[in-house]
Design a protein around this nucleic acid. Structure first.
Lengths: 177, 177
DNA sequence: CACATACGTAACTATTAATGTTACAATAAC
DNA sequence: GTTATTGTAACATTAATAGTTACGTATGTG
């Protein structure tokens, strides 16, 4: 796995879930545009849309074109695990075989793929099972704790006030959460 | 992981262990050259030597330059697991973070790496633990069973006779096991 | 010692994958 | 009809992998 798609895809999912939780609480729109996501991820909106396309094919998000369009989660953050995100955005097959294939006229070469099948698939399965222990909701709650967002809501702060605290160091006018 | 280094590295280790087991039984040299390994793997000897260099740094094999030089296992095949091979030849860090880094002026961006550290390291650990269940010896025994090499030894066949059975379809004069 | 064989590694090429970017058609709200 | 947004094609850039050639170094054999 040489890509950052899984980490970026997870970032996107957490951002969508965070927006849903916070803006949902204030009765505001929970739709997020690829521009906003690209700002948070620090990349190009097209890169985000490509990932959203994969996440959409996996049924994890719903996107809508046109004015006031954007993306929302297609299921509850509680029901989506890191395994779902991984499988949505990463290629099949964690381990790659020989580029040119082994020499089949060799006792080792003609059996190596057969005997490695089980170890490699079990190792990949173990990794995915570890990822399935983490939900998007769990990650969002961690972030809310780090930034004490629950306390701010309890204290009666408005959405704008909460958001402003993250805008202070930034010069951009884009929405950050 | 976009490389085939782990699969090829394992192929090499199994070939070395197979040579040690079979030639050891007949009192013959158990040293294997990078040319022989490259033949089995179906690649260039330099590619093999680069992998052997990594395996050597990890203490898994011993190489010797000069005439009648080559490589042998540095430990018993029973004591070497696929995890050892994986760690010897693959890069650190199964999961890659954002290329340009997330936007730190964002509530999600500035925490995403922190909250992903635990899930990602646990997933990688789970994968490695699955690999550690398999020894090089176990894989060699599987191959010997597939080719009924134990039975051939029991039946009194010589090394040359056993080897010849794998040479039949091949046109090369190189040693294949 | 001279020779033959093999490792170790640098240097270069070719191929592939990932990311970033520009551009634009299609879509949808207002 | 205007504006904002997705979806995707096309292309450029960068990095990693694998393959190859070349050559210095090491070492057993005669």
């Amino acid at each position: 796995m040489n890509s950052s798609r899984f980490v970026v895809g997870t970032h996107i999912m957490v951002a969508l879930a965070g927006k849903a939780l916070l803006c949902g609480h204030f009765g505001m729109s929970t739709v997020v545009s690829s521009d906003e996501l690209a700002f948070s991820v620090n990349t190009n909106p097209v890169v985000v849309r490509r990932l959203l396309s994969l996440l959409q094919k996996a049924g994890l998000v719903t996107s809508k074109a046109g004015r006031y369009g954007g993306t929302t989660l297609a299921a509850s953050a509680q029901s989506i695990t890191l395994r779902d995100v991984y499988e949505a955005v990463e290629e099949e097959g964690l381990f790659h075989a020989h580029y040119q294939g082994p020499n089949m006229h060799c006792a080792i070469g003609n059996s190596i793929e057969e005997i490695l099948e089980s170890p490699l698939s079990l190792a990949e399965k173990a990794m995915k099972e570890a990822l399935s222990e983490y939900t998007i909701e769990g990650l969002v709650l961690e972030i809310m704790q780090i930034h004490k967002i629950g306390e701010k809501i309890e204290a009666g702060m408005t959405y704008e006030e909460i958001k402003q605290e993250f805008d202070q160091e930034s010069t951009s006018a884009l929405d950050k959460f």
